[in-house]
């Protein structure tokens, strides 16, 4: 009995020592950019085998909470933190990484194309439009063979930046939505099924014939789900694409702390449910080793990393914004000393 315990204890101690030379940085949060983040962290690990960045896609709400509690080294969110949330995490920076689109996908094998007006979209998520052949849908899709069956609405069950972007849009285009569920990371859904993460919503829509849900563009493309065309601020029908996302960001005024919404953006080609996604890091890093590694990674992500964005269906940041972000990254300090400035 005692020997067993001793052996087990020794094994634990030894194995810990064997792994101690690798630097493990822990992060958690948004599922929206998970496909590109997981690619980035994997690529970065190949370039720097001694640095492992462990990222868990638990949702933006989780990312904000855990970085506030400092149980992770960085957070990630595609909903900017509110002022109230920021007061609990003083010194936390929003570092924009890429842009993406929240797309509305559906599962109707007989209908390859679908258009929805903002009113129809809000109506479906409010639970007012429940059938696929509702006049509000049929009017804009005269050629589609819409079935006389129920729409299974799928939304997020966790606190989500994707939800935040989506409901932010709905609140802008639908007064009824604004007065009802409202905008937020986790709203009181009048209808539908909850799926965990972008992964869960995608999985549920894919499995459920007659399903309709919202998710990040990359998930829709990877899973070959048909996407709804939406009517934008200028009254044009637009398909979600990297170009239409970039168009939405083109005219946006971006504040110094990067907390901005670009939903329902003006512009003929602008996709109306576009958004930034952010990594959340503290300006003053407590751990010298991790802080420096994190700052270097961010620098890499904003340069080499941007080149991988398009292949994974994310829009790279506009050039002007990148220049501003560089300046912000240079303000990251470890024990008062700027990490990246020292490198130069």
């Amino acid at each position: 009995m005692k020997k067993l315990t001793l052996i087990a204890g020794l094994t634990l101690a030894l194995s810990s020592a064997a792994f101690a030379d690798k630097l493990l940085i822990n992060g958690a949060g948004a599922t929206f950019p998970f496909p590109i983040y997981s690619k980035w962290f994997s690529e970065y690990n190949k370039l720097h085998p001694d640095i492992q960045i462990n990222y868990q896609s638990i949702g933006s709400g989780g990312g904000i909470k855990q970085i506030t509690e400092k149980t992770v080294d960085f957070g990630a969110s595609d909903a900017p933190m509110s002022d109230a949330e920021l007061t609990k995490a003083p010194g936390l920076l929003h570092i924009p990484t890429v842009m993406g689109a929240v797309v509305v996908v559906y599962n109707l094998p007989a209908v390859p194309q679908l258009r929805l007006t903002p009113e129809a979209l809000a109506g479906i998520f409010l639970g007012k439009i429940t059938s696929w052949n509702d006049p509000a849908i049929a009017k804009e899709n005269p050629k589609a063979k819409l079935p006389d069956s129920a729409i299974s609405v799928v939304h997020r069950s966790d606190g989500s930046g994707t939800t935040s972007v989506f409901t932010d849009y709905l609140a802008k285009v639908s007064p009824e939505w604004k007065a009802g569920p409202g905008a937020g990371k986790s709203v009181n859904w009048p209808a539908g099924l909850g799926g965990k993460g972008n992964e869960g919503v995608t999985g549920t829509v894919k499995q459920t014939e007659g399903g309709l849900g919202y998710l990040e563009l990359a998930y829709a493309n990877q899973n070959k789900l048909p996407m709804v065309e939406l009517k934008n601020h200028d009254g044009q029908w637009v398909k979600p694409s990297l170009e239409s996302v970039s168009a939405a960001a083109a005219k946006a005024e971006i504040p110094a702390d990067y907390r901005v919404s670009i939903t329902d953006a003006p512009g003929k080609d602008a996709y109306p449910i576009s958004g930034f996604t952010w990594l959340l890091v503290y300006q003053e890093q407590a751990d010298a080793q991790k802080g420096e590694a994190m700052a270097r990674f961010l620098w890499w992500a904003e340069h080499d990393g941007q080149k991988q964005a398009a292949a994974l269906d994310y829009a790279p940041l506009p050039h002007a914004l990148l220049k501003k972000v560089e300046k912000t990254l240079e303000t990251i300090t470890v024990q008062g000393k700027a990490v990246l400035a020292a490198r130069k």
């Binding site: 638990i58 989780g62 990312g63 909470k65 966790d158 986790s186 909850g194």
Partner: peptide, 15 residues
Amino acid sequence: YTLPAVIANEFAEAS
């Protein structure tokens, strides 16, 4: 929804 299910889904992110 059930009691344990909502705890599993929301506890890690409750702000």
